[in-house]
Each structure stands twice: as C-alpha cells, then as structure tokens.
Design a protein around this nucleic acid. Sequence first.
DNA 1: CGCCAGGCTTCTA
DNA 2: TAGAAGCATGGC
Length: 286
Amino acid sequence: MDYSGIRVDGAGLRLTGVRHFHLEEILESGQCFRWQRLDEARYRGTVDGLVREISQQGDTLLFHGVDEAEFQRLWRGYFDLDRDYGAVKAVLTQDPVMARAVAFCPGMRVLRQPPWETLCSFIISANNNIARIRGIVERLCEGFGEPVAGGYAFPTPRRLASLTPEDLAPVRCGYRVAYLLDAGRMAATGELDLSAPYTLPLEEARASLRRVKGVGPKVADCVLLYGYSRAECVPEDVWIKRALGRLYPDGLPGFLAPVAGLGQQYLFHYVRNCPDALPASDQRRD
DNA sequence: CGCCAGGCTTCTA
DNA sequence: TAGAAGCATGGC
C-alpha cells in the first residue's frame, strides 16, 4: 500500500505518506483523457460521473470535497494505491534501461479506469494524437453524457447504441464513429461482457475485446492494462515500437514480464519527454 | 503547407 | 499469411 494515513476535514480527504506518486506524471502520460490541469499540482477530472479536483503537495494528496466512503469505493482503486510500486520498481530497475525510465518519472502509476470509458477512449486513440483524443472525448461527454454536478458523465453503452453516425458528427471523431457505435451496441446487448476480462485468461480477454470493430492488438492491450489492471500487457504504439527497437533489439528481458505493462508506462513517458532517451533522429520536434 | 498521430479494416498477392 | 492501401481529423 502506497500511503500511510487518511484525514478528513472541511476541505476534503487528505491522504498522507503517499509514495511513488506524482499527479502530473500520472495524469499527463497518455493513459487518461479527462483530466485538466489547473496548475502543476492540481487537476480536475471526471470519473464514474463524479467531477473532482485533486491536488498534491509533496507526499500529501488532497481529494477536494471527497469523503472516506467515496475514497474507498473509487479513488483508492483508481490510483492503484494498493499496489506496492516499491516492489514493482525493485523488479524494473534490475534492467538498466528501465532504471533510467523509472528515474525519469518516479511518480508514475498505471490507473485502473472504468473499462467502458477506457474501451471507447482507446478506440478513439487509434491513429490519432493525444491533444485531439482529449477534445473528442470531451465533446462526446458534453454532447451525450448525463449531466452531473459540475460536468458530464461518460455516455453509457445504451446511449451510444441509440445514436447514428449523423448524431455523432459534432464529436468529429472521423471514421471511428462506426467503431464507437459498434462498441455501444455490443455492450448494451450483452454481446460484449465488460466484466469478463477481469477473470478471463489473458488471450481470451484479448480475443473478446477484439470482437469490437476498431479494437486491434494495441487498443485491446490498452484496455486490459488501463481498464482491467492487467500489468503484463504491453500496448505497442509507434513510440513504444520505436523505443523497443532502439533500446531492446533482443526484446524485453523475460524477468520483466509480470510487470512489463507498468514498465511500458514509465518507458512511454520517458521516451516522449526526455531529450536523451532516444537517438536524435528518433525524437519529436515540438 | 506537409507530416504525423497511443492503429485498424480491408484489399491484394 | 503477409504486406500495403485507405482511412477522418486537426495539432504542430
């Protein structure tokens, strides 16, 4: 467990003794798309229809306006706080490349997001960039999500299933519109069982998700990693492919396998943000 | 303006 | 079965 104490007062719930946790690294590492930065230590986001602000000062997190019941029900799991990232890092840092990535973003964690929202978000992510993904998700929620205090919930499968491509035109998600509607229809009818991947063997979970149009190997692994906490899944996007090719020409060491997906998250942030991570010819210019 | 983006489906050989 | 084309949109 990566925190030591809980205190509730008028401002909300304070989590103390938090370790291996940095809001900015976690929320701006391309694994979630509904958090907006208010300042470098304070973010506002919507999860499970709850609009909340979270701020961090050193090893203390403040969940604004949150009581303990909500923390236990939602946020403790969402931020993966029951995992001992010290133990994860002890494995990862046996590898010299991973050791550099972990040192670059030691507060990284892999979220446990609601699977349905994760599925839709990563369907949208295909051949897209993070800035635009965020915009599409925002328009999808504002246009079709249930209004809640302070914002909008993520649209339900049933709501999406009731829509046409024309309805979704204002979202401007391009050709992915058919994929979203397909996902909504399958989840609404039960053809896709969103609770199954929690317990299915990995390959069966992958196969189940890939029955949805627009879900290939990479998107399926993103959903399994970020939605179902399958820490062994390594989504291979263009950045990770580039990094693996350059930094692991012989593949990832086998001993990393159980936590390779977590390592992938450190590595993704590292190669995209550290100027020295990759040879100059492989870097982005922005 | 052109290149690219947390890729996928479909077509072709 | 492998590889390439086509894809809608807009950030940079």
